[in-house]
């Protein structure tokens, strides 16, 4: 199973900047293993970030997003102590959800 995400959310009073580092292989489906067989694609397809229950970002990833994907975005509002929740789903149905408190 995939490891936890590292999420940081920092508010400057008017907007909140969120940085996410996911732990995922992001296998493209193009690579061959030592025996020459194709390694099947395994990558995150969808990611959703919510702030106090409201969606602030919906992303879709293809296999061309780097291994252990990094994502950074900003949204208006957000105060210290608020909760930012990030969840993703991959093409094999694996899921992961992590939550962080805005600093």
């Amino acid at each position: 199973m995939a490891g936890p995400m590292r999420i940081r959310a920092a508010s400057n009073g008017t907007e909140t900047e969120v940085k996410i580092l996911m732990s995922h292989d992001m296998e493209t489906g193009q690579r061959k293993d030592a025996s020459g067989a194709l390694v099947p694609a395994h990558h995150i397809t969808e990611l959703t970030a919510t702030h106090n229950g409201r969606v602030v970002l919906a992303a879709q990833f293809g296999p061309a997003v780097s291994k252990n994907p990094y994502l950074q975005f900003k949204f208006a509002g957000g105060a210290k102590g608020d909760k930012v929740n990030v969840s993703w789903v991959d093409n094999k149905g694996d899921k992961r959800t992590d939550e962080v408190v805005v600093a």
Binding site: E15, L57, A64, V65, L71, Q72, F73, K74, A76
Partner: peptide
């Protein structure tokens, strides 16, 4: 409410 400013890392 979300800024049009996103960064990520991709494979090329």
């Amino acid at each position: 409410g979300t800024m049009a400013d996103v960064s990520t890392r991709v494979k090329m």
